[in-house]
Simulated scan of single mutants.
Amino acid sequence: MEGESKRQRRHDPERKERIISKAFGAIAQYGVAGVTHRNIAELAEVSLGSMTYHFKGMDELLFIVFSRFAEEGAEFVRSRLSGAATPDEAIHILAEALTDGVWANRDNIAVLYEFYSLATRKPLYRPILAAWSETVRQSLERLFTPEEARAFDVCFEGILLQNFLNPSGGLTSSEIVALLKRICLGDG
């Protein structure tokens, strides 16, 4: 069609990152089973074609989202624990992190459990979870024995789930401190 100008593509260097960010929100909102290219594209305000241009398929996008999520979660714990000089300080810091809503909020916990569910069915995602747990345990082992660090890791998972499912009746920071001291350190 001579004479007609070709449709100009809008240069949007942030598009891929916006898709990844909005995919996280879509997973929190719809779950992995309900997330589609279409609902992510709508949230990211991009064309459906942008999804297939930037990602080979949903598994590639989910792998990127969950890898980043795991890295950010591990970094959150590492940075929080960096301020602790004693096991007691670390316990208080961790209890606060489990209840202050900064990381342990509805979207993060919903995505975390979607991630666990996906990893139970698709082995591709299990190494991401294993690396996350290993990084958290290594951060804990600066102040705790390997056995205590593992016990903390297990406790965190249960506390996060219980507090997520029971937002009005979840464990408080002081209850978590007492629990962690009792289970992980044998106090009380």
Rank of each mutant, 00 (worst) to 15 (best):
F76E: 06
A151I: 01
Y53T: 07
A84P: 02
R38A: 14
I20L: 05
M58V: 04
G158D: 05
L180C: 07
A119W: 03
F55H: 05
Q138C: 08
F24T: 03
L62P: 02
M51Y: 04
K6P: 00
S173N: 12
K22F: 00
E72N: 14
E60P: 08
E141M: 11
V154K: 11
Y113A: 03
H37L: 12
I109M: 13
V177R: 14
W132L: 10
L98N: 04
L143Y: 01
P146H: 02
A90E: 02
S47D: 14
T99R: 12
I176M: 08
L161R: 04
I91K: 09
R38H: 13
D88E: 15
D187A: 15
F164Y: 11
N39S: 10
E134A: 11
S5C: 06
E157I: 01
G170E: 09
F115A: 13
A23R: 08
A119M: 02
L112M: 14
N105C: 11
K56A: 15
S5F: 05
G188N: 14
R121G: 14
R7D: 04
S5R: 13
Y113E: 09
K56Y: 03
G158V: 01
E134D: 14
G83R: 07
V111I: 10
K122E: 12
A119S: 13
I64W: 03
E148K: 06
D100P: 01
G170A: 09
R137Y: 03
G170H: 10
A70R: 13
K56H: 13
P87Q: 07
R38E: 15
F55L: 05
A74V: 09
E114I: 02
N105S: 06
A95G: 15
D100L: 01
L143H: 04
Y53I: 04
A151F: 04
H37Y: 14
R68K: 12
S50D: 14
V46Q: 09
R18S: 01
K6I: 07
E71Q: 15
D187Y: 07
F144K: 03
A178L: 13
S5N: 11
E89D: 15
Y125T: 04
T120P: 05
W103D: 09
R150M: 06
P146A: 09
K56W: 01
E114W: 00
T172Y: 02
L124H: 11
A85C: 05
T120G: 14
A149M: 05
L43V: 00
D153C: 11
R10L: 11
K122D: 15
R7M: 10
P123M: 09
T36P: 10
G186I: 02
S21G: 10
G31N: 13
Y113Q: 04
V136W: 00
R80E: 11
A85L: 09
F76A: 10
L62W: 02
A44R: 07
S47L: 06
P123L: 12
F144N: 01
E89T: 02
I27A: 07
G25N: 06
T145K: 04
I159E: 00
E4F: 09
I109V: 12
P167K: 11
G170N: 04
T36L: 11
I93L: 13
Y125H: 00
S173D: 10
R137H: 02
R142W: 00
S168T: 13
E96W: 10
S21Q: 00
E71D: 15
C184T: 04
E89M: 14
